[in-house]
Computed example of a mutant assay.
Amino acid sequence: MKRIASLLLLLSLFSCFHVAAEDKKDYAYYGFEPDIVTNYISNRKKLGFVKISVELMVNDPTDLVALEHHDPLLRSAIVEILGNQEEDKVKSLSGREEIRRECFEMVNRLMQQETGKETVVNLLFTKYLYD
C-alpha cells in the first residue's frame, strides 16, 4: 500500500512539473542603446530632463529582429511621450507608471502598424533618473 501511495505521489509531482514546463514561454528582451535622454515640461525656469533605460519584453525571440529594425521609430515615440509630460507626473511613482503604460501602448500600436502584430508583452523602465 505504501508503494502505491508513493508511486501516485511521484506521478502527481511529475505531471505538475510537466504542466509547468509546457507553460514556460521563451521570453526575450530588447534594450534601447544608448539610454533615452530628453527634456520634459518643467515648473522651474531651468529645463528638466529625464534619462531612462527601456527594455521591451517579447514572447518570441524572433521578434527581436523587427524591434531592432524599428528602433528609431519606437525611440522617437518614447521621446515624444516623455517630452510632453509635466514635472509632477515625471517625478511621481503613479505618474511614472502612467508614462510607462502610455509608452507600452504606443510601442505596440506602432508595431501593429509596421508588422501586423503587437509583439511587445511588457515594457520596463530599468533605469529612471530625472532632474
Rank of each mutant, 00 (worst) to 15 (best):
V54W: 09
E22L: 14
H69W: 13
Y128E: 06
K51V: 11
V120L: 06
S15W: 10
E98N: 07
N108S: 03
D63G: 06
N39G: 12
A28D: 03
K127S: 02
T126N: 00
R3S: 12
F14R: 02
M111T: 05
S12R: 05
E87V: 04
I99T: 01
T38V: 14
V19L: 14
V90M: 07
N84K: 13
D60E: 10
F32N: 07
V90F: 14
N39K: 13
L9R: 04
Q85I: 09
I81L: 10
V50I: 15
L9W: 12
L67C: 04
S92W: 15
C16H: 11
E105V: 03
Y30D: 00
K45T: 10
Y130F: 15
K46M: 05
D23P: 00
S15H: 05
V107S: 04
G116K: 11
K89T: 14
I36G: 04
K2T: 12
T62Y: 01
H18E: 07
L64I: 08
I52H: 05
H18N: 01
A28P: 06
K24T: 05
V120T: 02
V107G: 00
D88F: 15
C16W: 15
V37Y: 14
F125Y: 02
Q113C: 03
A28T: 05
S42Y: 11
K45F: 08
G83L: 01
I81W: 08
F125M: 08
D63C: 01
F49A: 02
P61R: 02
S42G: 08
G31V: 13
E33G: 03
K91D: 04
P61D: 03
S92F: 15
A5M: 04
E97W: 10
V79R: 10
I78A: 06
L93W: 12
G83E: 03
I36D: 12
A20T: 03
L74K: 08
E118D: 10
K2R: 13
V79E: 14
M111K: 01
I36P: 07
N43L: 14
F32M: 02
